[in-house]
Each structure stands twice: as C-alpha cells, then as structure tokens.
Design a protein around this nucleic acid. Structure first.
Lengths: 191, 191
DNA sequence: CGGCCATTTGAAGCATGTCAAATATCGTGG
DNA sequence: CCACGATATTTGACATGCTTCAAATGGCCG
C-alpha cells in the first residue's frame, strides 16, 4: 500500500509479516509497526471512509491478507454494543503500543530497545500460537529491526551479537529464540 | 492524572498547556503529546468506558479543563453520522501525529527534531488563534522539549541557541517566535 | 558454481550525553 | 521593595554510544 492512496477495502493479515512505515523526505525510513498474523492493517479504516492513509505498508514475507469492503466493515463494527467495545479496545491497545514505542526510541539505548522489541514480538506471536516456547520465525532483516528502533543495521547487529554471546538469545537466518526471558526483561527495563 | 487510574470523566483543555507522558522504570520520562487549548485529553475515553489510562498527564501552566461524563459523552459522539465522522477524524489525526513523532525521534537529529516540534506547535496554536504571526506563549521548559524529543535539556539548549544565532527563531522565558518559517522547514526536512 | 544479499567485524568520526559551574530569571518572605 | 533561595538557562570540557565507511564472511538461489 502506498502512502496517500485511499482504499475501498480494509485488510487484515492472515499469514506472513508486513510493516507499516513512513518514508522521510531525506530518504530514510521509520517502521511504525510490524504487522503480524491476525493484525488489522490501517485500523483507522474501521471508522474512516475514503480517507488516504498517511503511511505505506510492505510485506516482509509471502503474505496472505483478508480484504473487506470498508463500508460494510464500518457498519458491522458499529452495529452492536459488543462490536463497539471491541473496536474501542483495538484502538486503545494500538495507541498504547505506539506510546510505548515512542518512549522506547526516545529514551532507551540500543540494548534496551532490541530487548524490548524481541519480547514484544514474542508476546504478540505467543498470543496467536506462533511462538514455540520463545522461538519464532522472524522474517525481518536486521535492517528492518533497525528502522523500527531508530538505529543502524550495523549497531543492531552488534547488539544482537552481544545478547547472543551472553546467552540470552539465539538466532539464525529467519528465526529467533529467546533463551532467558528474565534477564532480557531486565535489560529492556534498565538500559 | 495518574497512570492506571480509571476515570469517570473525560477532560478537554480549555486554557493552558499540559502534556501526556510515560514514566519509565529507570525514572526517565517520555513526553508523548503536548496538550493545547481545544485538545481532548485521553481521546480513548470517547469510546472506552471504565478503562485505566496507560499514561499520566500533568499541567505545564495554570490549566482550565472541561469535564464531561464519559457515558454521556460516548452516547453523544456515537449518536449521529456527523458525530461519528468527527470522532473518526480525531482518532486518525491523533494517530498520524504520533506516527510522525516516532519517525522524528527515530530518524532525525537534534536540529530537525527541534525545528519540527516548533513548527508543529506553532501550527496547532495558529489553528486556534493562539499564534501571533509565529510568536506564541511556550510554557514548556527546555527540559520538557527534551523529554518530548528524546534529547537532553543541555542539548536542546545548544540546538535552540544555534537556531537563534542563525536568526531563525527568537525566545525568552515563556515565549517563542519563529522568524524564518522557510529555513526552519528546510531544517526539519533535511536534518 | 557463481552472484547476490544479509550478517559480521574493524577502525575512525561525530552527535549527543554527562558533569560541573556560571549566569539569569522567578517567586517569596521579610 | 528588596534580598534571597530555588529553578531555568547557558556554557565548557570531556566521555560515550552510535554512525559511517569499508571490507570480509557466510548463506541462499538460480
């Protein structure tokens, strides 16, 4: 999805990963959210019709999405009290997540940012039964993690290697495992 | 407002400034949004009842707020098509602003961050007739700007002084003036 | 097997942070 | 109304975390 294009359809991720991002005037890019299976892309389209979205979306892996007509979807999610409650929770938890990311990027150093992101991804995947005991598929390259965390790919690499050497994580091409949740959480909090 | 406390009322700012922020485990703080006259504090309470808010809010200056019963407000904003449209726009523009901030903090250096923030504040104030030709009251201290931008108060100071020496802005205790919008925009884009 | 892309590592530079002290401004009580 | 203490801004010197540039290594796919 390109920034600025209005959409007649609203999508959700069925399988695979994608990401929402902003392309800056100077060419750099900030990844705003990783979109995982079960996530809605463009949640504002639940209530906003015919609006251009102010960001772009790209797939990180082969992606299967579900497409819904925005008008029909809007009528559906506003139709009952239960639906409206659910929608409100989707918005609220999305905003809470974005707030956390801002604090992460604004106030933590590399170690804490990487640790937090890994823990967050693992938790979101676990809720969807896509994490096997801390081990999960990670289609994002280190450069993608960097663009999400406000760092350089090189520095993300150094940080990941550091965590691996300390025995906290393990990873290879396309796969990540968290070995020590406790110490990783501590790093996410402290650094 | 303290983080974690549910609220029976939803507030809007009538006059004065406030800010939404997260307090991190290590004591540091990230300011998420400056709340200006006309802004709703806690927009998720428009649709979400009896939910604890995941951030705190503090006044930056003597503050007058309007308080509304959350239940009545929710019924009101969902009552008509026009109201629902307005609400959707409030949510969407809030999310777009937060996305921009994340990109700002994640991918720009100090000069660009400060320039962007000043331009954004001036624009939001101008829409409310609170900017006199680029000149406006700024109750935030440099330390507050720093906590919003992911920088140090010292470094914000150096950056501001730099902009002043170049003749782009002017400021004294509690007041800020933008002298050269064009060059400031250029810095916000380029740096 | 060869080429492409991602990861890894090293060395050097720069932006920002930290610490400390001087100056300026504000609010308050005498 | 002034003097004082508290708080904010400003400046300097130095430390450091992150970036940049460059090259080597490794994995994957055609």
């Amino acid at each position: 999805l390109r920034a600025g294009e209005p959409s007649e359809e609203i999508f959700t991720v069925y399988s695979g990963w994608a990401y929402r991002y902003l392309q800056l005037p100077d060419g750099r890019r900030q990844i705003l959210t990783f979109l995982l299976p079960g996530d809605a892309i463009s949640i504002e389209l639940f209530t906003l019709l015919r609006a251009p979205i102010p960001y772009a979306v790209k797939a990180l892996s082969p992606l299967i999405v579900c497409a819904f007509d925005v008008g029909a979807m809007r009528d559906l999610v506003l139709s009952t009290q239960v639906q409206r409650e659910s929608l409100a929770k989707v918005f609220a938890s999305h905003m809470a997540m974005m707030d956390q990311h801002l604090a992460l990027v604004g106030r933590k150093k590399a170690g804490g940012r990487v640790a937090y992101l890994l823990l967050e991804l693992e938790q979101r995947l676990r809720e969807r039964n896509l994490s096997d005991n801390g081990s999960f598929d990670l289609p994002a390259r280190q450069e993608d993690l960097a663009d999400a965390l406000g760092l350089t790919a090189v520095h993300v690499n150094r940080t990941l290697v550091g965590l691996r050497q300390r025995g906290l994580i393990q990873f290879e091409r396309g796969r990540m495992s968290i070995l020590d949740f406790e110490r990783l959480k501590q790093i996410a909090d402290d650094e």
